[in-house]
Design a protein around this nucleic acid. Structure first.
Lengths: 150, 150
DNA sequence: GTGAATGCAAACTCTTTGCATGACT
DNA sequence: AGTCATGCAAAGAGTTTGCATTCAC
């Protein structure tokens, strides 16, 4: 993801918040910029650490409240990989998204995307009596490093 | 799932535990039978409630320890649906398995299976540099009841 | 007899919430 | 000014762990 895309998410997010009647306080803006900096598969604690490293003193509660707000507005995607708590990442307006592959040895998370997978999911979504709004796919395994150096 | 299949999982599980050098204590056997009774998408608390309803006094810690052991041996599948903690279900030896669709309104979890999805996943698993050992797919949405009676 | 498994309770992590203070519009 | 957001600290849920006791092999 290039810098322009990155900047776009933060500013679009702030714009959407304003349009929805929410306030753009300094702490909230810092949180949003931290999410933007960190990008994919981040935790609340990761955001807090990043903020502290950047000299911000935003409290954990505000991070959780902001994440909940952004999730409710569809501005972040929320998911779990099994360990270390809930993960978040910026949601992109175009609808393009990816999924995750987790190393069960070292905890590393990488992203992938696959059209055939998306097609299969949208096809079967149409067959259920649920109104399917979202989906998660997580692969588990062992990454190349952990396989060669266990 | 019919009764024969159900009994088979519990007895096979006990056999695998013995073969791996673990002891088949009465509490452990009760936990395994509870998992078998409950079947799909169960929580540690659900197992505890079921055990208590059947007159067993097994402690929560033993349930967690047994679940961790069974997971390590591949005898249960572990996953999360976003709320209410970690979920488990019996893993079937044949390799056949299913995935889950969660109602974000009422929390109901249903199972589904889809060959095209499995093919897409095994195809892309072969393309990564991870040794992919397992995968989870979770669809989120609103179930038929919640849609008609919100 | 020996080591594994249990039960209880305490500890821990992640997350949410109450309430008074402070800040955006 | 009025309300929304923040920060702190306490509460809560789920899960893990230490340790003495009990039990399977």
């Amino acid at each position: 993801m290039d810098v322009a895309t990155t900047q776009r998410w933060a500013s679009e997010t702030l714009a959407v918040l304003s349009a929805a009647g929410h306030r753009n306080s300094a702490p909230r803006e810092e949180i949003i910029q931290a999410i933007d900096r960190l990008g994919c598969s981040i935790t609340a604690r990761g955001i807090a650490d990043d903020l502290r490293a950047h000299g911000s003193t935003v409290g954990l509660a505000s991070i959780y409240r902001t994440l909940e707000l952004l999730d409710r507005l569809g501005l972040v995607q929320r998911f779990e990989v099994g360990e270390g708590g809930t993960r978040y990442e910026p949601a992109h307006a175009g609808g393009e998204h990816h999924h995750h592959i987790v190393c069960d040895s070292c905890g590393k998370v990488e992203a992938f995307e696959d059209d055939a997978l998306e097609r299969a999911i949208s096809h079967l979504s149409a067959q259920t009596d649920f109104a399917v709004a979202a989906h998660d796919v997580t692969l588990h395994g062992e990454c190349a490093q952990c396989r060669t150096a266990p």
